[in-house]
């Protein structure tokens, strides 16, 4: 296929993905807006007002970047894992597999679909957060770069999960038992300065720590970890997830018999 034809195929997959999550917006866009509003009310306004400052900011200002990032991570992951597993389950993935479209185009179509949902939900959550606090962006470059890299990373992770999943249970195990604990322990609600040294070092093994702190740096200009290290870690995991996803597609593992 020519580059132009591959572009048409990519746009077809992407358009289909966007149409899918917009069609079921009450399941894909609304829950994050409601959940995050509750976080803002409970942790930001009610409890946050008693906590006082954290890292030199009000508690509300401190948690908002982490909560936005939490929405990006969960939505980009959830979009790809549910969509790709759904197409595997219904065998409609065969429509793509029998066509001449390149594997990298299939992967990018799904991943960019997940990224677009992550960004859309992030915009909704950010708008909701403006009802509770004032947001001032410290570095637009860092914010945009972290959002794009992180949503890509977790969209890829969702793809890998979908390839290995055999049932709908399998696509909820990772978000429930792996992703959510990592997010909560990734410094969304607290600064790592509060942790004893041992647990602070353990936390550095959690990739979400780098994601949350890099984004917090972009918004507030403060971070518990070095920015180059954070970018390096996110980039490393993204490249590794991309390479593994391509390996799965090229080998046909769990997709072809």
């Amino acid at each position: 296929m020519s580059l132009r034809e591959q572009w048409v195929a990519f746009m077809t997959i992407l358009r289909k993905e966007i149409k899918r999550y917009l069609r079921i917006w009450t399941q894909t866009l609304l829950p994050s807006a409601i959940t995050m509003s509750l976080y803002f009310v409970i942790f930001g306004s009610l409890i946050g007002s008693r906590i006082g400052e954290m890292g030199g900011f009000t508690y509300m200002e401190f948690v908002v970047p982490g909560l936005i990032m939490m929405a990006i991570v969960t939505n980009s992951y959830a979009n790809v894992v549910s969509s790709f597993f759904g197409s595997k389950f219904s065998h409609s993935v065969e429509e793509l597999l029998v066509s001449p479209v390149a594997n990298v185009v299939i992967l990018m179509g799904y991943v960019v679909g997940g990224v677009s949902r992550g960004i859309l939900v992030a915009i909704v959550v950010t708008l909701v957060s403006l009802f509770f606090t004032h947001l001032q962006i410290h570095s637009y470059f860092v914010v945009i770069a972290v959002v794009l890299m992180t949503s890509t990373l977790f969209a890829l992770a969702g793809f890998i999960n979908a390839v290995y999943a055999n049932s709908f249970d399998d696509i909820s195990i990772v978000p429930t038992f792996v992703l959510t604990p990592l997010i909560y322990l990734g410094g969304v609600f607290y600064s790592m300065d509060l942790l004893p040294e041992f647990w602070a070092n353990v936390s550095r093994l959690n990739p979400l720590v780098y994601v949350v702190n890099a984004f917090r740096y972009g918004v507030l200009g403060v971070s518990d970890v070095s920015l180059p290290v954070a970018f390096g870690m996110i980039a490393f995991f993204t490249v590794a997830a991309f390479a593994y996803s391509m390996h799965l597609l090229n080998s046909g593992k769990r997709l072809r018999q």
Binding site: R4, A9, M11, T12, S90, H91, S92, E94, L96, V101
Partner: peptide, 24 residues
């Protein structure tokens, strides 16, 4: 076996397949 997305419209299923072959 039927191997299309049961929630998609008939026209969308056919048009999307054309897209996978790079048809404008």
């Amino acid at each position: 076996e039927f191997n299309f997305n049961q929630f998609e419209k008939a026209l969308d299923i056919v048009v999307n397949q054309a897209g996978y072959y790079g048809l404008p």
